[in-house]
Amino acid sequence: MTPKLKKSLLYWLLLSPLCVVILLPFGIMFVTALRPRDELFVYPPTWTFSEFRWENFAEMWVKTNFGGALLNSLYVSLTSTIIAIVLSIPAAYALSRYRFSGKGLYRNFLLMTQMMSPIVLVLGLFRLMVHLNLVNSLNSLVVTYVAFNMAFTIWMLQSYFNTIPRELEEASWIDGATSFTSLVKIFLPLAVPAMVVTAIFTFINSWNEFVLALTLIRSQNDYTLPVQIFSQVAGRYQVEWHHVMAATVLATVPVAIVFSWLQRYLIRGMALGAVK
C-alpha cells in the first residue's frame, strides 16, 4: 500500500462520521419525498417503502403553491443580486485602486454592517418598511438583502480586483485609452469571473434568507421558498411531510450543486486575504 493510499484511508475513516451526519438527512429527504403518503407514519419507522411516488412532486407543486414561491424567490434573489453587484463594483474598485482619506473608515464601516445581523435589527427594519409602505412587498426584501449583502460583495470583489495588476490599466492609458475605455476593454473583461462568482454567492445568500422574509412578508402569496416551506411545517396539526420533503428537494438540490461547484472559489477568496 502506498503511503498516500494509507493516508487516504485514514482520512476517510476520520471524516466518515461527519460525512454520514451531513448526508443522512438528505437521504431521509429523498426517501420521504418519494414514498406514498400512508407509508409516512409506520411503526416501527423504516427506510424501505413500497413504490417510488414521483407524483408527490406534482401534487406538492399545486398544493403548496410551490411555483408562486419559486417565482418570488427568483425575483427577490435575482434583483437583489444585480443591484448589490452594480452598487458594489464602483465601491470595490475605489477601495482597490484609489488612495483616499476615509478608506480605512469605510472598510471598518462595512465590517460593522456585516456583523449586524438582520435579527437584532428586525423590529427596526419592520418599522422602517412600515414607514416606507413596503411591508408585504417583495421589494422590501430586495432592499434589505442588498444592504446586508453589500459588505460581502464589496469585500469579495475587492480581493479579486486587487489581483488584477494596476499596471494593466496604466499600460492602457499610455496606449491611449480613456479611463472609460480602459475600464471596459481591460479591467472588466478580467474581472468578469470574479463578478460571476460573487453574484452567485450573493444569489445563494438571498435565496436562503429566512428571518427577514418571515417578518416582512405577511401574505401567503408573497412568501419566498424558505418561508413557504416553513409555513407547511409550523403550527399545523397535519404536516404533509412527503410534500415538505419534495419541496425541500426542489429548493435545495440545484443550489447545492451550484455551490459545490463554486466552493473552491470561496476558499481561494479567503486565501487571497479575505480574512484581512
Binding site: 436562503n208 429566512f210 424558505p226 416551506i229 429548493a251 435545495t252 443550489v255 466552493q263
Partner: peptide, 13 residues
C-alpha cells in the same frame, strides 16, 4: 464538497 454541503442549504431547510 460533502463537508461544505451544509453551507449551501439554507438553515431553514
Amino acid at each position: 464538497v460533502i463537508v461544505m454541503l451544509p453551507w449551501a442549504i439554507s438553515l431553514t431547510m
